[in-house]
C-alpha cells in the first residue's frame, strides 16, 4: 500500500468559550488519511467543525491531542507544502494579480523570472490571460477565487487544502469553477482535501467522501465515489448520481 500523504489519528479539539466559561468540543476522535493524487471531500452540516479540521491540517490551529502528520513530518504550523484556498479569495489588495500569484514563489526563493513565467502559465490555464496587471478589486468574485486557487497551486503543494472555496459564489460561477477544478485535476492529479457542505459538489469532484456528524464532529462514514473520470458537470444528471446523493443526504440528516 502507498504511504499516506497526510494522516491524522485520533485528534480532539475544543475551544474555550470565555463568555460562558465552558469548553466546547468541536472535533472528536478524528482519524483520516489521504493518499497521493487523491481527491477527498469532507462533507458535513455547517458548524460541524469541518473548517476547524482543515485549519488543523493547514497548521493554523493546534490539536488538543492526537497526531497530524504530512509526508512523515508532524504539522506544527502553516507551510506552502499545505497551501490553502479559503472560502473568500483573501488576495492582497495592494498587489496586482501577477504579484499576488508570485507572492508565495518569492517567499520560497524562486527567481523572479521563473516566477513570472509560472504566473503567466497558470493565468492562462484558468482563462485569466491578460489580467495580470489588474488589481483584485477590479475582478469579479469568481475571477478572484481563480487567482486565489492558482496562487496556491503554483507552489506545487504536497496537499492542497480547500475550505468551501466555491460556497460564496453564485450558482453559475460555481459550476464553472467546479468544471475548471476537474480539468486542472485531470492534468496534475493534485492531492486535495476539499471541505464542503454541498453533496453534489462532493460527488462531482471527489474520489472519496468523508461525512462528518454534527458537533462534536466525527467522521461517521466514508464513501468511495465510483464515477469514471474524466468527469463533467453533466454527471449530476445521471441516475447513479441521484441514488448516491440521496443516500448521503439521508446519512447527513440522521
Amino acid at each position: 500500500m502507498r504511504k499516506a500523504k497526510l494522516s491524522v489519528s485520533d485528534i480532539n479539539k475544543s475551544f474555550y468559550m470565555p463568555g460562558e466559561n465552558i469548553s466546547l468540543q468541536v472535533l472528536e476522535k478524528i482519524d483520516f488519511e489521504i493518499q497521493e493524487g487523491e481527491f477527498v471531500s469532507i462533507l458535513g452540516p455547517s458548524g460541524c467543525g469541518k473548517s476547524t479540521f482543515l485549519n488543523i491540517l493547514a497548521g493554523f490551529e493546534n490539536v488538543d491531542c492526537g497526531n497530524a502528520v504530512c509526508c512523515g513530518e508532524s504539522i506544527t504550523g502553516p507551510s506552502p507544502e499545505r497551501a490553502v484556498v479559503f472560502q473568500s479569495p483573501v488576495l492582497f489588495p495592494w498587489l496586482d494579480v501577477k504579484e499576488n500569484i508570485m507572492y508565495g514563489l518569492k517567499q520560497v526563493g524562486k527567481r523572479k523570472k521563473d516566477a513570472e513565467q509560472l504566473a503567466s502559465e497558470y493565468l492562462k490555464a484558468v482563462g485569466l490571460e491578460g489580467f495580470g496587471n489588474y488589481y483584485p478589486s477590479q475582478l469579479s468574485g469568481g475571477m478572484q477565487q481563480r487567482v486565489s486557487l492558482i496562487r496556491s497551486l503554483v507552489l506545487g503543494p504536497k496537499v492542497l487544502l480547500m475550505d468551501e472555496p466555491f460556497a460564496a459564489l453564485d450558482a453559475q460561477t460555481r459550476y464553472s469553477m467546479q468544471q475548471l477544478l476537474l480539468q486542472l485535476w485531470e492534468n496534475n492529479r493534485q492531492t486535495i482535501v476539499f471541505i464542503t457542505h454541498d453533496v453534489e459538489e462532493a460527488l462531482l469532484l471527489s474520489d472519496r467522501i468523508c461525512i462528518m456528524s454534527r458537533r462534536p464532529g466525527r467522521i461517521i462514514e466514508e464513501i468511495s465515489v465510483p464515477f469514471e473520470r474524466p468527469r463533467t458537470i453533466s454527471l449530476a444528471g445521471s441516475e447513479d448520481f441521484s441514488i448516491l446523493k440521496s443516500r448521503i443526504l439521508g446519512k447527513l440528516l440522521t
Binding site: 497548521g59 507551510s79 497551501a83 490553502v84 483573501v90 517567499q107 520560497v108 496562487r151 496556491s152 507552489l155
Partner: peptide
C-alpha cells in the same frame, strides 16, 4: 494566514 501558508 494567507501570508503564512504562502511561506512568509
Amino acid at each position: 494566514r494567507a501570508g503564512r501558508m504562502l511561506g512568509a
